[in-house]
Design a protein around this nucleic acid. Sequence first.
DNA 1: CTCGTACGATTACAAATGTAAGTAACATGC
DNA 2: GCATGTTACTTACATTTGTAATCGTACGAG
Lengths: 129, 129
Amino acid sequence: MPKPVPRISEAEWEVMNVLWEKAPLTASEVTHALQEKTDWKPKTIRTLLDRLVKKQVVGVKQDQKVYTFFPLHTQSECQRAEAQSFLQRIYGGAMKSMLVQFVEEESMTEDEIKELRSILREKTDKQHT
Amino acid sequence: MPKPVPRISEAEWEVMNVLWEKAPLTASEVTHALQEKTDWKPKTIRTLLDRLVKKQVVGVKQDQKVYTFFPLHTQSECQRAEAQSFLQRIYGGAMKSMLVQFVEEESMTEDEIKELRSILREKTDKQHT
DNA sequence: CTCGTACGATTACAAATGTAAGTAACATGC
DNA sequence: GCATGTTACTTACATTTGTAATCGTACGAG
């Protein structure tokens, strides 16, 4: 069993998202990737990377002179951990409640709803195979 | 339009959850309700209540001698705000991705899946009425 | 009337988080 | 070889959060 994923803060999630997409990356590559979505200074991003390394969510290796960073946990793993605690706290643990709220509040288009249905349908179909 | 909901921390959410269920409550009633789920000291809970008041997520009124606390925002409103930011950060904004992950990873029983399907079905049915 | 209680108000204090700046060392272009 | 820029390493500092304790006061039990 991989050890439980450490907590990842909001800002850190942004960093992780770019690492999952394109790791391994140097600090400056991460910085460039984030410059589009945020207005964080390079130093700030560097701090976030260092913290992630200390938390052991991210690994480093020294290429030539420069460090490259890469995730030590899969995105799914981390998403699951967050989703778990989020659902617990906010919706009493029930994905159902969340979904109900989304459909009730018209915050999904009918197409989205159909898409979700088809996802669920595929799943149950598969289970009978 | 109600002003955007302030950020509610994890511990504060626990307090809000009891207030939404049974407000208005005095501090000691909240404490009793939480004593079952947490091992926070009464002083701690009081601090959380005070912070929620300062953030204007909770209101107070003075009954006789003692304060009673009650939510100033609906649970749905707050859930929506959290869900919004959560989905954005963790799943790139797509409820779909979250749902896919849940079904893929076998973390839902077939019954749960059926339940979700039926929720979605009701919704589209209703839209045609 | 007095003492303990229950509350409210104020204060505490460490860890996590957001958001960097300073400083040193190396590699590179002149 | 020297000035510059880039990177790493170290330090900073305010705010939020978790988790309370202390102090003052009024009220009810004796």
